[in-house]
Amino acid sequence: MATTLSINGKERRVDADPTKPLLWALREDLDMPGTKFGCGMGLCGACTVHIDGNAVRSCITPISAAAGKAITTIEHVATLPEGKKVSEAWIALDVPQCGYCQAGQIMSATALLTKTPKPSDKEIDAAMSGNICRCATYLRIRAAIKQAAGIAEVVEA
């Protein structure tokens, strides 16, 4: 059965079980492996994408539920104004260690800044609390969000 998805501004047809999670449709059917598998239960945020501008865990979102909505993935996030700032700050501060969680972190950070251009420290921690970084790059994640938001100067080695 085919489902039509709107991904990064393009219509894409996925010939798969409609209960298949968007994460696996992206990775297996659409050759977009930027969105990552970490837990499969909505617990780690590695699979975060935007659906109609909201940060959503694609591992627990069946493609049937995503049909007809605007999906944005890491491959395209830098074309959004806030996504561009976030991506640039992520590189400037060299946020990644292993890098595996970072697609999800960037998607969550971009969603935060789109809705809350100047978040407080508490708002940053709250918005990012669904995204695990096993390498614990959290100090730079906070700093990069602030840099992208124009809140603070870079304080880095």
Binding site: M32, T73, Y100
Partner: peptide
């Protein structure tokens, strides 16, 4: 001298780099 990770731009762009991304 501090050097940014050589894969950092590709990670940020969501490029396939990891074992799980092999296709």
């Amino acid at each position: 001298k501090s050097q940014i990770g050589v894969d950092t731009p590709a990670i940020v762009a969501g490029k396939p780099l990891f074992g799980i991304d092999v296709t």
